[in-house]
Design a protein around this nucleic acid. Structure first.
Length: 289
DNA sequence: TCCCAGGACTACT
DNA sequence: AGTAGTCCTGGG
């Protein structure tokens, strides 16, 4: 029922691909999202309660299953209003970034849902990507809405109200381990204190960060990820093990602390710190720096 | 079998 | 202000 091809985004993405600014593999494998999986010639993913099959054909990228009324949603989701060529030209002034951008040329920062991003990155603490993906998937299956696509079942990430029905035990069963109580407390905090993540989004980066770190299980790294991947705070600079490695190798001493690395990145790359982080992360992990 | 990776919290200095 | 130990799970 939802297998009609969309042409709403194809035309735009076609141009983007020609200028090397949109490559699905780089977008989905650079550590920012957990709900896109390889399928046939592309990826199938769930976002905003919608499923699409995204693939590249010749010099066109199609979103099969996207509805006309969701045109604007996908436009925003893939950040299509932004000129990544300009961003790259600025960052390429740095020799290390120039090299990193060669690898991750088609990266775009997805505009994801704040609640889903918050919970997903709480799960990411001291965890590996396949395990995080499994836990997020299990949570969606148990508490989210079912969506059919191409004769397969998919599940939207649950709303706050839906996830409020989960006990700590339920969340442990989903594979979240010691993070289960953090998730339950975050959901409870949002409901009890009537927290609107969209309001936090309106604050400046530092203020928003403080608010996010009031959630248990949210430290500097997780907060930076939520700011960057769901609140368009592009001056955030999440430092995970890979970014730590590459920064210590190419920019700083091998024993510099996480907080120093974070400050250095924010100062060096400014409003483009988040984009720089994505290129550096992808380069470091692909090349096992 | 053990050991390791992977961030945040707690409880110390 | 900085830091050792602990939390959980899967894979080598």
């Amino acid at each position: 029922m939802m297998t009609q091809k969309t042409n709403v985004n194809c035309q735009t993405i076609q141009e983007l691909k020609k200028s090397s600014e949109c490559h699905l593999e780089h977008i989905f494998e650079c550590g920012q999202c957990f709900r896109w999986n390889k399928y046939e010639d592309g990826y199938i993913g769930v976002a905003g309660g919608k499923v699409v099959y995204a693939y590249e054909k010749d010099d066109v990228i199609c979103l099969e299953g996207a509805k006309e009324e969701d045109k604007n949603f996908w436009w925003e989701y893939f950040d299509l209003g932004r000129d990544y060529g300009e961003i790259k030209r600025e960052l390429e002034k740095d020799e290390i970034l120039k090299e990193a951008i060669k690898y991750g040329y088609g990266i775009r920062i997805l505009k994801q849902e704040p609640f889903e991003t918050l919970i997903s990155f709480i799960i990411s603490a001291n965890n590996r990507i396949p395990m995080i993906k499994r836990a997020v998937e299990n949570i969606s299956i148990r508490f989210g809405d079912r969506i059919e696509f191409r004769g397969m079942e998919f599940y939207a990430f649950p709303t706050v109200e839906q996830l409020a029905r989960a006990t700590v035990g339920d969340l442990e069963d989903c594979g979240t381990g010691f993070r289960a109580p953090y998730i339950a407390e975050a959901v409870r905090k949002i409901i009890d204190e009537k927290i609107d993540l969209e309001e936090i989004k309106k604050l400046d980066t530092d203020e928003a960060m403080k608010k996010l770190m009031e959630f248990k299980g949210v430290g500097p790294k997780v907060a930076d990820c939520v700011l960057l991947f769901s609140m368009q705070k592009f001056d955030a600079f999440p430092v995970d093990v890979w970014v730590k490695k590459i920064m210590q190798k190419f920019y700083l001493a091998p024993d510099v602390s996480l907080n120093k690395i974070r400050q250095f990145g924010k100062n060096k790359f400014g409003d483009l710190a988040g984009f720089a982080q994505q290129y550096l992360f992808y380069y470091a992990r692909e090349n096992k720096v």
